[in-house]
């Protein structure tokens, strides 16, 4: 009897997530990703500034549809994302353990925290306007109502050192209120971000709502910060680039969330601290009477 030949391994290609599709970088480049202890894990796509541009175009295109959905529907869809993440738990745990250099048990805890964090923000979707908006008492025969609206396309720089929980903690609060996001994953540990993108793609999240780029922060962040069609910027993972990026963002008057003194995203009960900065308040006056 002939010997069974050894099975040829099916290796996974880590790609970008732009407009609901998984393209390679426009530049065709990739870069090696190593684990926390320095061993080679995989090659990830090395995005270029043109990928940033494409991602912003995709995010802009997705904005009217996503922000126009009911808050309840957005919450449902985000909850579905959490379901998909739960289904990929083992994959996430293995990648987080390698990327963050933590034990298998700790990695499981981090994945649980990330899924819980996503559910947390999914729950916020239809509760933001009650907390942030409301009816204002005015001295006159008017109804005066304040209503939060999403800012638009938000550039997000994921914090370093927490490849999944950090990522989820900055992405979910941005999109839950109806913004669309262009996220630059942690340069050193991008693999969980690509896996998250696959979870997003298999949930009902419309393409372009979340776009995930992997590559060099120093190459991707400046074009994102200077892009005139980006409305706000979360600098959580900007590190030493923060001041320069803030200056670039000022040229088009973007809203900027500065990086906190420590990992402020890690708070177990973050409230609206990361949601509120990416909302605009619209106030409507309406006369009372017949």
């Amino acid at each position: 009897m002939a010997e069974t030949p050894p099975r040829i391994a099916v290796r996974r290609t880590y790609k970008l997530y732009v407009g609901g599709a998984f393209p390679r970088s426009e530049s065709g480049r990739s870069y090696p990703v190593t684990s926390a202890d320095g061993s080679h894990l995989a090659n990830a796509a090395l995005a270029s500034r043109k990928d940033v541009r494409d991602a912003v175009v995709a995010a802009r295109k997705a904005f009217p549809g996503w922000s126009g959905r009911t808050a309840y529907n957005r919450g449902q869809i985000l909850y579905r994302v959490a379901e998909m993440m739960e289904g990929r738990r083992e994959q996430f745990a293995a990648e987080v353990a390698a990327a963050d250099g933590v034990s298998a048990a700790r990695a499981q805890e981090l994945v649980s925290a990330a899924v819980d964090r996503w559910v947390y923000y999914a729950g916020w979707a239809d509760k933001i306007s009650q907390v942030v908006g409301g009816a204002n008492p005015v001295a006159g025969p008017f109804f005066n109502l304040s209503e939060p609206e999403p800012t638009g396309v938000v550039g997000v720089l994921a914090p370093g050192g927490s490849s999944l929980l950090g990522l989820v903690s900055v992405l979910a609060p941005v999109i839950t209120s109806g913004n669309t996001a262009v996220l630059v994953a942690d340069e050193r540990a991008p693999l969980p971000a690509v896996t998250l993108a696959e979870a997003l793609a298999t949930s009902d999240l419309p393409g372009g709502v979340a776009n995930i780029l992997t590559g060099r922060l120093a190459e991707l962040a400046p074009p994102l910060a200077g892009h005139a069609d980006v409305n706000a910027l979360d600098l959580a993972g900007a590190g030493g680039l923060a001041a320069e990026l803030e200056e670039l963002a000022a040229t088009t008057l973007k809203r900027v969330l500065r990086p906190g003194p420590e990992d402020d995203w890690a708070d177990a009960d973050p409230g609206l601290a990361r949601v509120r900065p990416f909302l605009e308040i619209k106030t409507v006056w309406h006369p009372i009477g017949r």
Partner: peptide, 9 residues
């Protein structure tokens, strides 16, 4: 300018 522009302008 070296920066991407947007349709809002």
């Amino acid at each position: 300018t070296g920066q991407y522009s947007g349709p809002d302008y």
